[in-house]
């Protein structure tokens, strides 16, 4: 059961996006998230403009489509990352649906009501979250965890000048990523073992349930310490900390691909900013105005 949970795990391929420098992808992921933030989440208060404000989402969708095509990752593995947070999205959407008072009331029951504005902001909220998750999953899908750790290390290098141990932090991150699946599997085994000894984890009050976790957590801690101990020996044995001039097997070199990617994503950011501050629904009017006949 737990085995199937994906941590946005790396999908090996040799695509344009895979070949990008990890730093590029890290930075552009941030650009993407920022851009997403600037897309308006509600239209205007005017009822006839309830349909406005979708332009940014359409552009984002198109941009992601291009990225996915260039990343050559299967849609399935991207959708899987959405599945993991589906519950949260649904929950937020439901709450959002009932809170807005603006617009025309479409449905009401006792104190609950849904307005058309609420419907639109909810759709936009869902779009925003789904697009965010898809966009953010591109990085781990196309970049090995080691490359991500290396990229972070390189981007954070300036912090090293003020004596922040950047390299060790990157190493910790890399090891943590490496051991997540191992510890997951181990947890599963321990749960099965204790269940076989009659333990149950889903009965009783909160206190009882917390207490029921002890037979899981203690073996897990004990084995994690043992693993850490052995790993330390293995790392020492392989000359960790032998020199300050550690070299890198993975090379981070920016190339023409990175330049293109920067241009593309920044163009996207500019479009989103123009849409918000300069065009202000002009695009929506052009696209939806005629269609809605208003």
């Amino acid at each position: 059961m737990f085995k199937d949970i994906s941590f946005g795990q790396y999908y090996p391929a040799n695509s344009f996006v895979h070949k990008l420098d990890a730093r590029t992808k890290l930075l552009l992921t941030i650009v993407f998230i920022v851009a997403l933030f600037f897309i308006p989440s509600n239209a205007t208060n005017r009822v006839d403009q309830a349909w406005y404000g979708y332009f940014g989402y359409m552009v984002t969708f198109a941009v992601l489509l291009v990225v996915i095509i260039f990343a050559r990752v299967p849609i399935g593995s991207i959708l899987k990352s959405i599945k993991g947070v589906l519950f949260i999205i649904v929950l937020m959407a439901v709450i959002n649906l009932f809170v807005s008072n603006q617009g025309e009331v479409l449905w009401a029951w006792k104190r609950l009501h849904i307005t058309d504005t609420a419907v639109h902001t909810t759709i936009k909220l869902i779009l925003r979250l789904v697009l965010l998750i898809i966009g953010a999953s591109i990085l781990p899908l196309t970049t090995t965890p080691v490359a991500i750790a290396d990229g972070l290390e390189s981007l954070l290098k300036p912090l090293g000048w003020i004596k922040v141990p950047i390299h060790d932090m990157a190493m910790i991150l890399s090891i943590a990523l490496r051991f997540i699946p191992t510890l997951f599997e181990e947890t599963q085994k321990i749960v099965a073992t204790q269940k076989a000894r009659g333990a149950s984890f889903d009965t009783g009050n909160l206190f009882k349930r917390a207490k029921a976790l002890i037979p899981i957590l203690i073996p897990l801690f004990v084995s994690s310490f043992r693993r850490a101990d052995e790993l330390a020996f293995a790392m020492d044995s392989r000359c960790y900390n032998a020199t300050n001039k550690r070299t890198k097997y993975r090379v981070n070199r920016m190339g023409w691909r990175d330049l293109l990617a920067f241009l593309f994503m920044n163009a996207y950011l500019v479009v989103i900013l123009l849409d918000r501050y300069y065009w202000v629904f002009e695009m929506d009017r052009i696209i939806f105005g005629g269609w809605l006949g208003k």
Binding site: T144, V146, S174, R238, K245, T247
Partner: peptide
């Protein structure tokens, strides 16, 4: 060492193999 799970530092096979030489500062 004994436990196959407790010796690798990297998620990807080749990155782990490179760990030792990297530590020694060997040219790429």
């Amino acid at each position: 060492f004994q436990n196959p799970d407790n010796q690798a530092v990297a998620t990807i096979v080749e990155d782990d193999v490179a760990f030792g030489p990297e530590n020694l500062g060997i040219p790429r």
